[in-house]
Computed example of a mutant assay.
Amino acid sequence: MTKKPMAPALCVVGSINLDIIATTERLPGPGETVGGGVLSHQPGGKGGNQAAAAARLGAQVRMIGAIGSDEGGDRVLAAMAAAGVQTESVQRVSAATGTALIVVDEDGQNQIAVCPGANDALDLTEAEFGSDEAVLCQLEISLEVVLEAARRAPGFFAINASPSQPIPAELRDRCDLVIVNETEAEQMPELASAKVLVITYGSKGASLLRQGREVASVPSPKVEVVNTIGAGDAFCAAMVLALNSGESDEDALRIACAVGADAVTDAASQPRLGPLSGYRQD
């Protein structure tokens, strides 16, 4: 099989958080306290996670986001740089770095509460996008900022429409790719007519629809789940890179599902990943 070209450059515009994670035997119910947890601090945020994943998959990645001038900001910035992400376009603002409070149980399932902090101050006034640069956004930042990025990006534009919220037709129609999970797809029916819509089903795999018609569906590899926090973000990064580097719809789905499955075997919010080419099934 002829080797596909290296994935193109990617700019991630989105959230950057510090994850404060309590790992417990089980998730607490309403009003319940569960003891015996183990505490950790990890870099996170959908934008930061997707940028780190794309860089580890071998893409040339830069991040546009906002963090605070605090210790948390120092930590997440250093982590992105260590993953290979170009961080020169990350803005430092007076607000505190965004924070996610996460509880993870022994099966890898989680509960998450997000405090956006500096993410709400992200400003694209001086941002520029190259014609050969794919752009990936999420909805953990202002919808107005996402719309501005969509209007200004001249090339391939994708959104991970998460967390769910109403999407204006202008944004949906501008997207070359929209990625959601099955719950988000149900909550945002307006996405059914997107040019390309990818719906993930967790351990069951994912499907790809073009103009509302399913054209590919693949199962997810069976693996031992350690942590699901960064799996969706790793999937998104891989899906954008695979589709934008010329993979077929089905092959791109298989690659992204393999990357997502690999991600859940790692306890980190920004899991260690191999090169994108290593997930191809030739």
Results as ranks from 00 to 15, higher is better:
Ala66His: 04
Val264Thr: 10
Val215Asn: 03
Lys4His: 11
Arg56Asn: 05
Gly117Ser: 01
Leu143Tyr: 03
Asp107Gln: 15
Ala83Met: 07
Val13Ala: 00
Pro5Tyr: 09
Ala242Gly: 03
Ala54Leu: 09
Cys236His: 02
Val90His: 03
Thr228Ala: 13
Leu253Ile: 06
Ser203Phe: 08
Val135Phe: 08
Ala121Asn: 09
Gly108Trp: 07
Ala59Gln: 01
Thr183Trp: 11
Asp266Phe: 01
Pro189Cys: 13
Pro166Val: 15
Ala66Glu: 02
Arg210Tyr: 08
Thr200Phe: 06
Val198Thr: 08
Val225Thr: 15
Asp233Glu: 09
Thr33Tyr: 02
Val198Gln: 01
Arg280His: 13
Gln50Tyr: 01
Ala51Cys: 06
Ile67Pro: 00
Leu243Glu: 04
Ala161Met: 04
Gly212Asn: 06
Ile102Glu: 00
Gly14His: 07
Thr99Ser: 06
Ile255Pro: 00
Ala258Leu: 12
Ala242Phe: 02
Ile16Pro: 00
Pro275Asp: 12
Gln91Val: 08
Asn227Phe: 03
Thr265Asp: 06
Leu208Trp: 02
Leu171Met: 09
Leu177Thr: 04
Leu147Ala: 15
Val34Gln: 09
Asp282Asn: 13
Arg56Asp: 02
Asp107Ile: 12
Leu136Ala: 03
Leu77Val: 07
Thr228Pro: 01
Ala121Cys: 11
Asp123Met: 08
Ser193His: 08
Ser131Glu: 11
Ser220Leu: 13
Thr24Phe: 02
Ala149Met: 06
Arg254Asn: 08
Ser142Asp: 14
Ile179Thr: 06
Ala51Thr: 03
Asn110Gln: 11
Val103Trp: 01
Gly35Ser: 14
Asn181Val: 14
Leu101Val: 15
Arg26Leu: 09
Val225Cys: 13
Thr24Gly: 04
Ser162Leu: 01
His41Glu: 13
Leu136Glu: 02
Pro189Tyr: 09
Ala234Leu: 07
Gly29Leu: 14
Pro28Phe: 10
Ala153Ile: 10
Glu106Ile: 14
Arg56Cys: 05
Gly65Asp: 03
Arg92Lys: 11
Met6Ala: 15
Pro163Phe: 01
Val61Asn: 04
Val218Gly: 02
Lys222Ala: 14
Pro189Thr: 12
Thr23Asp: 12
